[in-house]
Nucleic acid binder design. Structure first.
Lengths: 153, 153
DNA sequence: CGATATAACGGAAAAATTCCCCTTTATGAA
DNA sequence: TTCATAAAGGGGAATTTTTCCGTTATATCG
């Protein structure tokens, strides 16, 4: 889908604050509610906007710890990768998971409540998945920046 | 702040779909709109919910490429770390940034439109920041899972 | 057992979204 | 240039949702 200048500005606004009233967006973009409303509906229908969510501040929840871990599999065959994908989808502690280039590892972002919970997760749930050969964990000391915005140029 | 069972369920719903009408949430949690409304307002005032955002599907935007890079600084002094923090906040391509334990590196999630844009970003903007000594880039081949949900147990 | 605080309820007012039809602007072929 | 057609924008009314009351229930503690 082709995005014009208005689309880019509008998507930027919705990525920053999806609760901004349509009429306010309209006046910022020098339009009225109808064209704004219809553009937004189009994004939703086409799946460009997949969902609207509330974002929590982990520093306000005293029991949150973030860990990145890179997981290597014994096999790089497609079905091994796919079965790992599926397994990971159902583990709530795994908040993000990426298949990475270079070493053919997965990079996982994991959220747990403390170090003990991480140990349980890592040695219990994660190491138990099929084909897992190596897990390297790195702990987040400080969350410097976290945004969900995909910059559109 | 102490979170009871209703708070946890409510935060889980809002993290999944913040557009769910309050009356629908109320009936799911066997309550009426008022207590739900007042709990949500409390989360917003206390900053537990920091914002509401629209989430874009990068696969629907043909020009999106994700890279993780670990950046080492020459100095681990506090002011060097802090000036890096501040600089990173203003770079839109840097979507997330974490100070990591272990090697005292930063881990950055970077979103650009293609490989050429990444080269421009990496050698231009990123390497130009003060104290940067080493940049290791790993490219995302496939986004297996990406959620903004912080699991609350 | 009161007294007080906290949470939940129900309805009305305000605000936002949604939907309708109409007007304007852009596009392209004759 | 001009007309036909499509695409985008506009304005207002109906609907839905949020917000804000006053009131009632429930729990906690001396």
């Amino acid at each position: 889908m082709k995005l014009d200048d208005t689309d880019k500005k509008l998507l930027a606004i919705l990525q920053e604050d999806s609760k901004t009233p349509i009429k306010d967006i309209a006046s910022r973009l020098n339009l009225t509610k109808t064209p704004i409303y219809e553009r937004i509906k189009r994004y939703e229908q086409e799946g460009i906007i997949s969902k609207y969510v509330g974002v929590l501040d982990p520093s306000k929840l005293d029991t949150v710890m973030v860990v990145f871990c890179s997981v290597s599999l014994e096999s790089q065959k497609l079905d091994a990768l796919e079965s790992f994908d599926k397994a990971v989808a159902d583990i709530p502690e795994v908040v993000e998971c990426y298949l990475m280039g270079g070493a053919n590892d997965f990079l996982l972002k994991v959220v747990v409540k403390d170090l003990q919970a991480y140990h349980t997760f890592s040695s219990g749930k994660l190491a138990a998945l099929p084909n897992v050969s190596q897990i390297k964990s790195t702990f987040v000391l400080n969350e410097v920046k976290r945004s969900t915005v995909i910059p559109i140029f």
